[in-house]
């Protein structure tokens, strides 16, 4: 039983998906996303100025900090709790993440 659990634990990362979200024209592209627990989201910055993506959702809380143009930053989805991502610099940016 323990071996089965160990194998499942080790292989769970293989099935986790990486989702790419771009930030361009002060917009998240795409602006909606469906993910699973364990998946990762890579935030790209294709704008010529900085962004600062974050969420206040307690279960999946993150703040990637100041993200330079051209920089990619990855976060992991930790819990089964859908959340919104915003940018601390550009208030009209919104990404709706549904955790399935």
């Amino acid at each position: 039983m323990k071996k089965i659990l160990l194998v499942l634990l080790l292989t769970s990362g293989i099935y986790a998906a990486n989702h790419i979200v771009d930030q361009k024209g002060k917009t998240f592209i795409p602006h909606t996303l469906k993910v699973s627990v364990g998946d990762t989201i890579t935030f790209k910055n294709s704008d010529p100025f900085a962004h600062n993506a974050y969420t206040d959702n307690e279960a999946n809380e993150f703040d990637i900090g100041m993200q330079s143009p051209g920089q990619n930053i990855k976060i992991k989805v930790k819990a089964q709790s859908s959340f919104n991502v915003e940018c601390a610099i550009h208030p009209n940016m919104l990404l709706e993440v549904t955790v399935e």
């Binding site: 010529p48 100025f49 900085a50 100041m66 330079s68 143009p69 610099i89």
Partner: peptide
């Protein structure tokens, strides 16, 4: 602010 020089003269 940090965004000010990221890069320079972007905002």
């Amino acid at each position: 602010g940090k965004a000010n020089n990221n890069p320079a003269i972007s905002i």
